[in-house]
Every structure is written in structure tokens, then in C-alpha cells.
Design a protein around this nucleic acid. Structure first.
Length: 853
RNA sequence: GCCAGAGUGGCGUAAUGGCAGCCGCAGCAGACUCAAAAUCUGCCGCACGCGAGUGCGUGAGGGUUCGAGUCCCUCCUCUGGCACCA
């Protein structure tokens, strides 16, 4: 077997693993468990790209290693198969999304199998399978019964030209991604989930997770906890009270105006009651604000706009002063109370607004060592700074009545006490996190198991009647009114109760996140039709020990899944408060792109290669040498690398090895096909080393034993820490040095070390070495620490920190012995001559350094 | 603007505070070959030097240390995320 016939070898072992169910995971065993989860893919029509196998290879290597270390490993794969592309394809061609989905899933499964991953295929799940989404609906019913699901009118992305509601990611710069039509925010009836009720726990429990610090920080920012106070402002001209939320209640003496969001309920009320004198201008401003997308409203460097409400004024509760009220879109309806007190001297946004409208700016906080702080007068001081003063740490209160002289921190506490005593405010914790908009006006998603009755009541579909399956439709086009496509299936939507009361089924469907919120639970007991999973098995396997996937899911998927898990935990259905104990994000794999001097990107198929150098046509028609740089793989640049091609040319083992050899798993790395050739050569040499070098049956020499044991040690340690690139490097170093002689022991240990990385070749070599069974459950080779001990070592000698020579000393040499040996070295002596030795640093087994004068 | 991460040969990268550049790619030279491919061997940070060697060198500038790619401070650049959240 001298040829490395990777195609035949890989087919052979993939068939073997599948037929023998080599990686079937027993539900229970006496072994310690290791639950290793990949983020399951959306099976797109384009098939896998080289980014998918990166994380999957890393987890596969780790799983194979853990099996050899004696763990019972749960390593499943499935499909997140609801979603827009299949539905859009259905709209265009009339093909049922289930048909498209099945085709894509089959393709994905075949591609994934061709990489030799050790998944337990008996646990495959598919979110579009009614047997699966029965339980997605069941979990929704639990949320509903717990009062965490409700219906509300909320603004959504409505595209009048397309007659449909769009997801946030389908809206780019306020226009529809398809067709570039304007999109406006329109209030529509939607299902919401009360994730906000879990905000504090979702925040606090992050501290218990072994996740990348950056991801935890992103979730913290997303949840956005802030502590402040609610303050009530009475109004003149009406009996209403405006409640504002502020984190700076200490600056209440400096509040010189108020701002309501254009959507604030009191604005509408006052307009209706005729209290507002300039109603036309106010209505016009509201109309303009409503037609703006979120992006337009938050655009940077934008001049502040707004309209004063004439006829109503606010009363500052702390000093009774009359202050004007504005509406402006810089105040968001959905945060806090939708109303603010404006303190222009100490808030950038209020400062900008006050400048535009020429409003008074009153200073109430000053730097501790400033004149203003020393000569604290009780009268208001106009603020003359260029921008707002926001230094909370060193600021001191001025011109603020009973707060004057206090630090910002103390002033806050004092003010809250004052507000509570007077009954005009109280402390309040606020979160940026909003409730989760949980419905889509789409066909290809889980139907809500909900019936709205004509008597105004609403009921859930009985548990025993789940799943509520999707009805067949003739066409999947949007209705044009914003009504979901399911409304067209009248025989499905219209139902009659035993007592004759008629009802209509919910026609919204769930978002794609729903199915992916709990799939890791279903893997544990995928065929169970009595429960989403057996509680005993959940106890056995949870939490997931390692979850690997792209950082694009840093916030939404991971936050939603944590939320559902906590709800299930509270209901006693899962035994842990968190689903994913450890999380690792793999870095994106970039492709190569080419550009001209003037920065024009040239797609791969328009490049002319001359003497191995890329040229592209310039504007003038001249051929120009292009510069190469890494860029995201994209259809437009035509630089997408297809794993099928790599497997055909170099084999799955080479692809796996290269993906891991490129660099650290977490890093962003550019793809290089030349690099694949490099690791492919290594596999060929490895094959030759085992199969063509005579296997001697003898003791290893001391040098051989050291080499072998050092490699085994390094590979094992690097696997534990997921440093796959350096583990591969260690095996390359070993093979480079091991040369043309080997023993059975060395060949077997090398094969076992290589096998998690290149499992097909590993199995083939193991069989060549005379073993009848798979190596998947062979014990991981142990290394002998004694073989690594050296008698004599070479250490560097420095003079004034510069390397001047090397000497050999006994490994156990004392500092004094090292110093003597170092001085004896001719090179070193040259630099010591004529100098006084001030100090000698001799670190055993490390180095010697002379400090001289 | 805010938060996080990263800057090391031509390129991907490696280095418990202790010999910077392991391993791989590309390149150069040689062996084998009629020749090419494949394979094997050697060289391969920059400058000066025939050479031995010397000097410089981990984004920039400071600092701590006998000794800094690694630790501290300031700054620059890039990548990702968030962004009027009161």
C-alpha cells in the first residue's frame, strides 16, 4: 500500500462507519459524558462552503479524541430548515418549500458525510419535521400558559410597494433589499414574548458561563441595564402628569425643558383634546417621524429636530419652575417612558437640541477644583462650555439647593430619597432589551397553535392535537394587505367549536429562531413522542459542554435559546439554569480578492494569469498587475471555495487538516489552496512512514523515545486546549525528524495521534498495522515523562541581555556551575574581558546573564 | 463616539517574562530524469561584509526588569459589534 489513494480510502471508511453505526451514542453508560454541539446549518441551495467545515472539523477532532479518552460523546447534527429562501423560491416557481428543503437537506447531509464527521446520524433533527415542530409548538404553549406570550400592536417594517412585512435584515438603509422600495414603520398585530421578564437573570448568569469575554460583553450591552429614577412632572394647562426616566436625577435642578417622543400617548391625547395650539405643526412632525426608518432616525451628525407643544408646560418638581415641552424623534418611544427631562448642560444630546432651539443651559455640576464649584451660589448659573459636562466621577453639585456641594453619586441618592418622600418619583432599573417580536407574516414557519374565537376569547390547540401542521397552499405570494399567506387557506383557518362558536386560527407563523432555540434538547432524545425529551436523559446530558459556531449568533440566537432554557428550567422541564456551559466562536475563512491600483475589484473569472501573476484590464484597456488581498467569499467576486472540489483533488482528510492548520480556530484566516497541498504532502509522507518503512520489533532508542513521547504529549495537550494548528505542527516536526526508521510502537502511536485529525487515513493505517476493528475507541496513547528527561542541555549565555554564546551543561547544574561553564566559553569571555561583573543571573535549565560595567 | 479583539519575514503563523521567526506556503540552489512533473537534500528576516562576523529587527513612542513579541502607560492602524437607550 504505497499509494495514498485518498478517494478510495475515504469512501471505504465512511461506508464502514455508517453501516456499523460506529458513532452511535448510547443514551446512558458508565462513562463520563461529553456533549459537543455544532451550530446546525440552514441548508441553503448553494451547498456547503469552506466556512462550514471549520467549526465542524474542530468539534469532530475533539469528539474523536474524547472517545479515545474514555468519554461517552454526544455529537449530533441537524437542520435549521425553516426560513425565507425556500419560501421565496416557492413564490417564484410554485414548488412547495418542503420539496426544496428536502433536496437541500439531502445535499447538505451528503456533503457533510463526505468530510468524515463522527455524528450519530440516528439523532438527526429537522426543524420543519412535524414530529419536531410539534414540540416547538408545545414549548410555545408553555410560554403562553406562563403569561410570557402576548399579542400587541407594534411597529414593523412594512413595504407598501411589495405589500409585505420585512425582517430587519431585509431592510437596508430604509429600503427593501429586493427592489429597493421604501420601507416604513407600521404598527401591526404581532405576537411578543416577554424576554424582558428574564433580563436580570440573563444578565447575571452570564458570569457563570465559560464564554468568550467579548460575546458576554455584547450580551450585556444588548440587555443594557441602567439604574436611575422615574420622576413625575405636573403640567400646566392639563391635569396630566409626565413621567420621565432619567439616570441623572441629581441634575434635576438643571432640567430646562422636556421632550416627548412623537408617538407618546399624551401627545395624541392633547391633540385630540385641543390643548395644543400649534396642532398642525405637531401632526406634521409626527407624520414625518413615522415615515422614517430606525436608521434614518438615528443617523449620525444629524441636526436635532423637533416641535414645541404650545399651550402646555411642565413643572419642575424640585423648584416649581415652568419649562417648555417639545416632541422630537431623538427621544425613543420604546425606551424608558418615552419622555425625558432635558439637562442640556450635562447631556450631549440635550445640549445639541438646546443649541438648535436656543434654550437656556443651566450648570448644576462642575469640576471639583473649578471656580464654579468653590463659589457655589444658590442661583442658577448659565453654562458657557463648548459641550456638555458629563464627568460623573469628579463632578460636584452646584446651584442645586439641598444637593449643592455633594458628589454626583451622593446627590443621586439624596434626590431619590427626596423624590420618594414627596411622592413624585422613585428609583428604577431599566433595560434596553425589548420584548421579542415573535411572529412573521410568512408561510414557511411553525404555525401558532392558537385559535381566536368570535366571542373574543383565545385558546390553545389541545396538546394531544399537536402538531398543528401547515396547510397546503396553491400559491405562497404575500396577500398584499400584510395579512400572512396562511389566511388564504380558509378551510384550515376557519374552525367551529362543539358549541357552535366559530373561530379563526392564528395565521402568523413563528420566526426561524424558534426551532433553533431548543434543538440541542431534542438531540438528547430525538424519537420521543411523549415529551420533547426524557427528563432522566436531560439530567444525564445537560448542559452542553462545548458549543462551537460563528460569532454572528453572538446575541440573538444565544440570548433567545438561553431565555427558553430558563423558562423550561423554571417549569421544571430541564435540570440546569443555562444551556451552553462553554462557547467557542470559530473565525471566518476569507477568500482571496484582487484589485487594481485604483481600487477596482476584479472578479476571479475576469483575471488573466501571466507567468503566475494576475492581470486585469484597466479602464484604458491596458493590462494591469493586480494586488491580492483577503476578502469575504462572495458570489460577486466569484471567489467562493467549494469543499467538494477540495475533497476531489486532495481528499477530506487534507481539507480537515488544512482548515485546522491555517491558524487558531478563533482567528479570521484567508484561504490558500497552496496550503492544502502542503498538508496533503504531509499526509502522503505519514502514509509512507507507516506503510513503507520496515516496522522493527525492538526497543526505541533514547532519541526515538524522546521524539515520540514529546509528540504524544504535545498533541494531547494541544487537543485539550483546542490549539489544533500547533498539534498538527508537532506531528509534522515528528515526521520530519523520525526519518526512515520506525518501530511498531512508534507507528501505532503516531497513527492514533493522527487519527482524530485525519480519521480515514488513521483507520486505514490502523488496519494496515493488523488491527481488525475501528480505532475510534482505542485508548489515547500515554506518554512517558521519564523519556523526556534530558541529561545535558544547551543554554544561552547573555552579556547585558545580549546573546553572546551557548554552553552545554548538565540538566541538574547549579547556578554556580552554570556560571563557571559560561565564563569558560570563548565567545562569552571576549565580551567579559576588561569588564567588572556586577551581577550574575543564572536560572537553572534556562540561561545565564552577566551584568557588567 | 462607545465596547471587544488584533498588529511578528514575501504570505499563513509559532514562541510558561529567558536563544524571535518552530511548522507550512512561496522563492532559490542541488540530486534523480533524455526532459518535465512528482519526490528527496540544502538555503531562505533586513543591512554591511568574500568570510568569520557585526549592527538592526515583533505597528509608533515612553516605562518596569539583569532580560520585554510577552507586563504597564500614551498613541496609530485594522477587524468585528453597538450606536440619540436619557
Amino acid at each position: 500500500m504505497s499509494e495514498y489513494n485518498f478517494t478510495a480510502i475515504e469512501k471505504k471508511w465512511q461506508k464502514f462507519w455508517l453501516e456499523n453505526k460506529t458513532f452511535k451514542t448510547p443514551a446512558k453508560s458508565g462513562k463520563p459524558k461529553f456533549y459537543c454541539l455544532d451550530m446546525f446549518p440552514y441548508p441553503s441551495g448553494a451547498g456547503l462552503h469552506v466556512g462550514h467545515p471549520e467549526g465542524y472539523t474542530a468539534t469532530d477532532i475533539l469528539c474523536r479524541y474524547k472517545r479515545m479518552k474514555g468519554f461517552n460523546v454526544l455529537h449530533p447534527m441537524g437542520w435549521d430548515a425553516f426560513g425565507l429562501p425556500a419560501e421565496q423560491y416557492a413564490v417564484e416557481t410554485g414548488t412547495h418549500p418542503a420539496v426544496t428543503t428536502k433536496k437541500n437537506v439531502d445535499r447538505f447531509r451528503e456533503q457533510i458525510r463526505s468530510l468524515g464527521f463522527s455524528y450519530d446520524w440516528d439523532r438527526e433533527v429537522n426543524t420543519t419535521d412535524p414530529k419536531y415542530y410539534k414540540w416547538t409548538q408545545w414549548i410555545f404553549e408553555q410560554l403562553y400558559k406562563k403569561g410570557l406570550a402576548y399579542v400587541a400592536e407594534v411597529p414593523v417594517n412594512w413595504c407598501p410597494a411589495l405589500g409585505t412585512v420585512l425582517a430587519n435584515e431585509e431592510v437596508i438603509d430604509g429600503k427593501s433589499e429586493r427592489g429597493n422600495h421604501p420601507v416604513i414603520r407600521k404598527p401591526m398585530r404581532q405576537w411578543m414574548l416577554k424576554i424582558t421578564e428574564y433580563a436580570e437573570r440573563l444578565l447575571a448568569d452570564l458570569d457563570t458561563l465559560d464564554w468568550p469575554e467579548g460575546i458576554k460583553e455584547m450580551q450585556r450591552n444588548w440587555i443594557g441595564k441602567s439604574t436611575g429614577a422615574l420622576v413625575d412632572f405636573k403640567t400646566t394647562g392639563t391635569d396630566d402628569t409626565i413621567t420621565v426616566y432619567t439616570t441623572r436625577c441629581d441634575t434635576l435642578f438643571g432640567a430646562t425643558y422636556m421632550v416627548l417622543s412623537p408617538e407618546h400617548a399624551l401627545v395624541a391625547k392633547w391633540l385630540a383634546a385641543g390643548v395644543v395650539k400649534n396642532a398642525d405643526a405637531v401632526r406634521e412632525y409626527q407624520r414625518k417621524a413615522a415615515s422614517k426608518s430606525d436608521l434614518e432616525r438615528t443617523e449620525l451628525n444629524k441636526e436635532k429636530t423637533g416641535v414645541r407643544l404650545e399651550g402646555v408646560e411642565g413643572l419642575n418638581p424640585v423648584n416649581g419652575g415652568n419649562i417648555p415641552i417639545f416632541i422630537s424623534d431623538y427621544v425613543l418611544a420604546s425606551y424608558g417612558t418615552g419622555a425625558i427631562m432635558a439637562v442640556p448642560a450635562h447631556d450631549e444630546r440635550d445640549f445639541d437640541f438646546a443649541k438648535v432651539f436656543n434654550l437656556p443651559i443651566v450648570q448644576v455640576v462642575a469640576p471639583a477644583d473649578s471656580e464654579a464649584a468653590k463659589n457655589a451660589s444658590p442661583d442658577p448659573v448659565p453654562y458657557s462650555g463648548e459641550c456638555a459636562f458629563t464627568d460623573i466621577a469628579s463632578g460636584v453639585m452646584v446651584s442645586s439647593g439641598f444637593l449643592t456641594g455633594l458628589s454626583v453619586d451622593d446627590a443621586r441618592k439624596a434626590m431619590i430619597a427626596w423624590l420618594e418622600e414627596k411622592g413624585v418619583g422613585k428609583a428604577k432599573t431599566q433595560y434596553k432589551l425589548r420584548d421579542w417580536l415573535f411572529s412573521r407574516q410568512r408561510y414557511w414557519g411553525e404555525p401558532f397553535p392558537v385559535i381566536n374565537w368570535e366571542d373574543g376569547t383565545r385558546s390553545l390547540v389541545e396538546e394531544e392535537d399537536l402538531p398543528l401542521t401547515l396547510p397546503e397552499l396553491d400559491d405562497y405570494k404575500p396577500t398584499g394587505t400584510g395579512e400572512p399567506p396562511l389566511a388564504k387557506a380558509e378551510s384550515w383557518t376557519n374552525v367551529v367549536r362543539a358549541d357552535g362558536v366559530r373561530g379563526v386560527r392564528e395565521t402568523n407563523t413563528m420566526p426561524q429562531w424558534a426551532g433553533s432555540c431548543w434543538y440541542y434538547l431534542r438531540y438528547i432524545d430525538p424519537a420521543n413522542d411523549k415529551a420533547f425529551a426524557d427528563p432522566e436523559l436531560l439530567k444525564e446530558w445537560l448542559p452542553v459542554d462545548l458549543y462551537v459556531g460563528g460569532a454572528e449568533h453572538a446575541v440573538l440566537h444565544l440570548l433567545y435559546a438561553r431565555f427558553w432554557h430558563k423558562v423550561l428550567f423554571d417549569l421544571g422541564f430541564v435540570p440546569t439554569p443555562e444551556p451552553f456551559q462553554r462557547l467557542v466562536n470559530q473565525g471566518m475563512i476569507l477568500g482571496l480578492a484582487y484589485k487594481t491600483k485604483r481600487g477596482v475589484l476584479v472578479p476571479m473569472d475576469q483575471i488573466e494569469w501571466r507567468d503566475g501573476k494576475p492581470y486585469g484590464k484597466e479602464d484604458g484597456g491596458e493590462m494591469e498587475l493586480l494586488t491580492e488581498f483577503p476578502a469575504k467569499m462572495s458570489k460577486s467576486l466569484k471567489n467562493v471555495v467549494n469543499p467538494d472540489d477540495v475533497i476531489r483533488d486532495y481528499g477530506a482528510d487534507s481539507l480537515r487538516l488544512y482548515e485546522m492548520f491555517m491558524g487558531p480556530l478563533q482567528a479570521v484566516k484567508p484561504w490558500s489552496t497552496k496550503g492544502v497541498e502542503g498538508v496533503h504532502r504531509f499526509l502522503r509522507r505519514a502514509n509512507k512512514y507507516v506503510t513503507e518503512t520496515p516496522l522493527e520489533d525492538r526497543e526505541l532508542t533514547k532519541a526515538e523515545a524522546k521524539r515520540l513521547n514529546a509528540m504524544v504529549k504535545k498533541v494531547g495537550e494541544d487537543l485539550e486546549s483546542m490549539n489544533f494548528n500547533t498539534a498538527i505542527s508537532a506531528m509534522m516536526v515528528y515526521l520530519n525528524e523520525a526519518g526512515a526508521t520506525t518501530t511498531r510502537e512508534a507507528a501505532e502511536k503516531f497513527t492514533l495521534c493522527l487519527s482524530p485529525f485525519a480519521p480515514h487515513l488513521g483507520e486505514e493505517l490502523w488496519q494496515f498495522l493488523g488491527h481488525a476493528d475501528t480505532l475510534a475507541y482505542e485508548p489515547w496513547p500515554a506518554y512517558d515523562p521519564k523519556a523526556l528527561v534530558e541529561d545535558e542541555i544547551e543554554i544561552p549565555v547573555q552579556v547585558l541581555g545580549k546573546l553572546r554564546g551557548r554552553v552545554k551543561v548538565a540538566a541538574a547544574a547549579t547556578p554556580a556551575e552554570m556560571e563557571t561553564a559560561a565564563k569558560a566559553n570563548a565567545e562569552v569571555a571576549k565580551f567579559l574581558e576588561g569588564k567588572t561583573i556586577v551581577k550574575v543571573i543564572a536560572v537553572p535549565k534556562r540561561m545565564v546573564n552577566f551584568v557588567v560595567k
